[in-house]
Design a protein around this nucleic acid. Structure first.
Lengths: 196, 196
DNA sequence: TAAACCTCATAACAGTTGTTATGTTCAATT
DNA sequence: AATTGAACATAACAACTGTTATGAGGTTTA
């Protein structure tokens, strides 16, 4: 097993502890115990906790991007856009965990300028994919010409993020179908040249 | 000074520490130091830290509700709705701090079922105000009849929450004007019987 | 005036934290 | 066969955590 794979195993263990017990209870010892070994493993593959935290945070972006790219295969037009945005919705357990870990890190970043900057970079990277998608839709004459792709990408991502949070918080929030329906409505009403 | 007022002072000190240094660094001693006294004060007015945290969290709901009610005075129609939703947008420093503290608590609630339930209750309380507003708009024949107030309140709150988070994360996100404009567009395109 | 009480300071407690140094096992290399 | 180094385990360290007991000072009450 390569070194990078082992680092991923540590990170995944950290994820599980975060989801189950919260980020502030995710200590070196708790992670080691989750892996079934001692802290020697954790300290061997990560210089310190900060490096581990950062690595685990980067995994959020990685996984989200994978979901975005996986969803856009063999789909075209506005369905591609909806598929991309669906990466952020809690449609299955894996995406629900991503959401939880992401939120834990985001709350943890309050009062930590450096960590908040990391979130910025992550968000910018993912947003770029949406912007690109919107530009292609515009080039294909499917999107209204007066739409600014960057602005609208922000609004769209804000919408899906909000829907996800709503799912996490609210007991009787929108169902998965209603979430995607809401996005479709938004796209149809505001972005599409002709209703879809 | 009454006992409740003193509890509020402690809570406000906690808020300041949370915003400045993060929730996990908000210890009893840090709060006491922020107040310029010792931990004796904190332990005297709160049985334990959990009670203090809960009190500080309730303040989020309180402040948000005050903003919602303050904004809806002397406004009517759809502007009332926009004003209500603007309570969640980071339009000034106070609302920005509310957002930060709220987010810190939300991330902290990951892996803590009890705390997440608190957020549920808070969100339900605030959502009820939006639902009521939508119902009144519907009764006044301003809102499309096929709109379900509860579903749409969820979507609206998700939207504003997402926009707020976006502001916190993104460097070049929507400006305050663009945020309110986006909400207005959404309301006009999807909810209004006639474009406003 | 004396007793009760509220408000807070101080200090000690045990538990947990990240970090570090050292030791051990075992496979790969020379 | 000797040596090197990777992959851990173990243990100790100081720093920090929330909680609690004790006591001081001042105000109110009896």
């Amino acid at each position: 097993m390569s070194q990078e794979e082992r680092r991923l195993e540590v990170s995944e263990a950290a994820w599980r502890v975060i989801v189950r017990e919260g980020l502030d209870r995710t200590s070196m010892r708790a992670i080691a115990q989750e892996m079934g070994c001692t802290t020697g493993v954790v300290t061997h593959y990560f210089r310190n906790k900060h490096e581990l935290i950062l690595f685990a945070l980067h995994q959020v972006t990685e996984k989200l991007q994978v979901f975005m790219e996986k969803g856009t295969q063999s789909v075209s037009g506005f369905e591609r856009l909806v598929a991309m945005l669906s990466a952020f919705l809690p449609l299955d357990v894996e995406r629900q965990d991503i959401l939880r870990v992401w939120l834990a890190f985001l709350g943890y970043a309050v009062g930590r300028e450096n960590l908040m900057t990391e979130h910025q970079h992550s968000a910018a990277r993912l947003r770029a994919l949406v912007v690109q998608e919107l530009q292609q839709l515009q080039a294909a004459q499917l999107l209204r010409k007066d739409i600014d792709p960057t602005i609208e990408a922000n609004a769209l991502l804000a919408f899906v993020n909000g829907l996800s949070l709503d799912w996490l918080i609210q007991a009787d929030c929108l169902t998965a179908e209603q979430q995607q329906w809401a996005i479709r409505q938004y796209v149809s009403d505001r972005l599409a040249k002709k209703p879809i």
